[in-house]
Design a protein around this nucleic acid. Structure first.
Lengths: 138, 138
DNA sequence: ATTGACCTTGGAGTGTACTCAAAGCTTTAT
DNA sequence: ATAAAGCTTTGAGTACACTCCAAGGTCAAT
């Protein structure tokens, strides 16, 4: 079990951030010690890693909350709802991947163009590089 | 040339947003009409599309500004700097793609598990699905 | 000529996601 | 035993990215 400072350290976030996420129901302390200190187990560590990743790719804390609340439960009456919600998110993720692939290709073009050929710099900005990528990729 | 309302409409953003981006040097009006109205050409449209995409995958306006300012210029003395900056961004993008791929696989697992097999729901949350994906993908 | 939809600027207000400070209790180290 | 570091809560402050409002000028249609 980790104290809040230990967990914060492992994740490179502040203790304030962990308390903020608790307040907004993204995580909760596994238990409290006799003196009232928050104690966390590895599951919370894992959830936090998920949250940090999801934030990094542009999901808001609300959206992350939605993602975390996805439960495929045999007994659930709302299985169809869960499925359609998850499918929506899947499509969002696919869209993000497609956009990032465009970025990647254009950045790669820039890297290749720069300092590569001495004589010609065919792409002089990320926009002109994107133009090339857009043209060939779609 | 488009007036601000026309451009905003094409992009599904507000005119306030366009003025906000101008104030923060992400875009600028191509010219002004005699009466002081902002007028935009297709280049600005393209830049805005880039900004919207980049925002969608988690880049801040400051980072987007950095991306937009990448210029591979034969005459530039800082070609090496540009190259290394671009390579850094490329790595960031690759990282984001890798994380999204994890998300994608785990969401796909959830979609498949839900309402698919009548008897078994092997993955009951995005976290347990992610566990499976992490284990097999890395 | 006047109504309504559009544009201008400047400045205030909002939501999200932290971040810091105050006042006080607990633990660890010297 | 005392100081430093770490924990608690509550509440205020900050940065980012808009979003809205006020006061006024412009344009197209009736």
């Amino acid at each position: 079990m980790y104290k809040i400072g230990e967990l914060a350290n492992m994740l490179s976030v502040s203790t304030d951030t962990l308390r903020y996420y608790e307040k907004h129901n993204l995580i909760s302390a596994t238990t409290r010690s006799a003196n009232g200190y928050r104690l966390y187990n590895d599951e919370v560590l894992q959830i936090m890693q998920f949250i940090i990743r999801a934030k990094g790719v542009g999901f808001s804390l609300n959206e992350i909350n939605d993602l975390l609340s996805i439960k495929v439960d045999k007994a659930s009456h709302s299985c169809a709802e869960v499925k359609s919600f998850t499918e929506d998110k899947l499509q969002q993720v696919n869209q993000k991947i497609a956009e990032l692939s465009c970025f990647k290709d254009s950045l790669q073009l820039l890297v290749n163009a720069c300092c590569g050929g001495d004589e010609e710099a065919t792409n002089c900005s990320i926009l002109s590089a994107l133009e090339n990528v857009d043209a060939t990729n779609q």
